[in-house]
């Protein structure tokens, strides 16, 4: 066991590297902070119950996407009977979550997800700013 020193140093280095994100966040003081998305003021109820939206909003958006683009279906009847025009920018971002940066982006940044929706779909706020 003459290699003991080398083995333990190696192990320590390895542990240090894989736990690096933890140390990094701890040093930056971000670990205890949640994403704190800002909830919309004008609407109290989303197109589906909160728990569904939390876990499956991406699935719902993809269903909407396929409905509008591929099946020419444009209206979504919510669980409570309300009808919505299936549109990310036209309904979600205009009627409700008018502040994408404080809602969508906060959670996505927190979870480290890079969504490609915004490669194409325009944040209405951004468009207004660029028009000025």
């Amino acid at each position: 066991m003459r290699d003991r020193g080398v083995i333990y140093t190696g192990l320590l280095v390895f542990l240090g590297i894989i736990t690096f994100p933890m140390w990094h966040d701890w040093a930056a003081g971000t670990t205890s902070r949640g994403p704190d998305p800002v909830l919309p003021a004008q609407e109290k109820q989303c197109v589906a119950p909160l728990s569904t939206m939390r876990t499956s909003h991406m699935q719902l958006l993809m269903d909407w996407r396929d409905g509008v683009v591929r099946r020419n279906v444009h209206t979504y009847t919510a669980f409570n009977g309300r009808n919505f025009n299936m549109s990310l920018t036209g309904t979600c971002l205009t009627g409700c979550h008018t502040n994408k940066a404080d809602f969508c982006d906060r959670c996505h940044n927190y979870a480290g997800v890079a969504v490609y929706c915004w490669d194409c779909h325009v944040d209405p706020k951004l468009a207004r700013r660029s028009a000025k």
């Binding site: 920018t89 036209g90 490609y116 490669d119 194409c120 779909h121 325009v122 944040d123 209405p124 951004l126 468009a127 207004r128 660029s130 028009a131």
Partner: peptide, 18 residues
Amino acid sequence: FDPRPYISELNPDYPTRT
């Protein structure tokens, strides 16, 4: 390439392309 820099006025009601 990314077309967005070449769109002078974005229409938020319609997507751009990637």
